[in-house]
């Protein structure tokens, strides 16, 4: 068992399991928070993540296959996807490839939203481009069911924020490509409404000069 990565809320271990290359996502006890709150968050998120990942797969969004869910140790055992995090490769792509990837990201977000799934933590850290060129979404711990414009807006706003904080040199074009991909799934009209809501939510933030 090798510790592959220490995320914010879970530790990812890579190992071989019945001949399969797998990841064990363990939501570890967080010593900083109250034990009651800690257990509640870990259990509800583990359950929700497994459930919604399963649904995402059904709606045509590639996710790692889930093999086992253990609510006591708040652990999900899932397929190991060979590839790179979008965060790590976005800057090294050609402009054309980058925009194509972003459009694909938007398309998958649209597919989730169309199937009443809100991811809840859309960042480029939570997307893997596999070696075969397939885009996977991971980390559904904050996901939920909703068709509300507001929740869709928050979801896309987080994506936009991730571009502007981490990939600032091409944030504008990337996010535009995301919305274009999003529109192919959601339709121009809905996409326009969601993007409008994204701007509206951003304006609710602190110290926005033009409201």
């Amino acid at each position: 068992m090798v510790l592959l990565r220490k995320g914010a809320e879970a530790e990812l271990y890579q190992e071989s399991w019945y001949g399969l290359n797998i990841i064990r996502k363990v939501r570890t006890v967080k010593a900083y928070r109250h034990p009651k709150l800690d257990l509640e968050l870990r259990q509800s998120r583990t359950g929700r993540e497994a459930q919604i990942m399963h649904e995402a797969k059904g709606s045509g969004v590639p996710i790692p296959l889930i093999f086992r869910v253990d609510m006591n140790s708040t652990t999900i055992t899932m397929q190991y996807v060979e590839g790179s995090r979008v965060k790590d490769l976005l800057h090294s792509l050609s402009s054309k490839k980058r925009l194509r990837l972003c459009s694909q990201i938007g398309q998958l977000i649209g597919r989730l939203h169309r199937n009443r799934i809100i991811h809840g933590d859309l960042t480029t850290s939570n997307m893997i481009l596999s070696e075969t060129g397939k885009l996977f979404f991971i980390d559904f711990g904050l996901s939920e069911h909703s068709e509300e414009l507001e929740k869709r807006g928050v979801d896309l706003l987080l994506m936009k924020r991730a571009f502007y904080s981490t990939h600032y040199s091409f944030a504008l074009e990337c996010f535009k490509a995301v919305t274009e991909g999003y529109a192919t799934e959601m339709g121009e009209e809905t996409c326009k409404n969601v993007v409008e809501r994204v701007n509206k939510i951003a304006k609710r933030g602190r110290y926005v000069s033009k409201r």
């Binding site: 220490k6 995320g7 914010a8 809320e9 900083y32 928070r33 109250h34 709150l37 960042t123 850290s125």
Partner: peptide, 18 residues
């Protein structure tokens, strides 16, 4: 407990990301 845990979680996410 709740408000600080929320901020700490968000901070930990950002720390893991950056």
């Amino acid at each position: 407990e709740v408000s600080f845990a929320m901020l700490s979680e968000a901070a930990e996410r950002a720390l893991a990301h950056t």
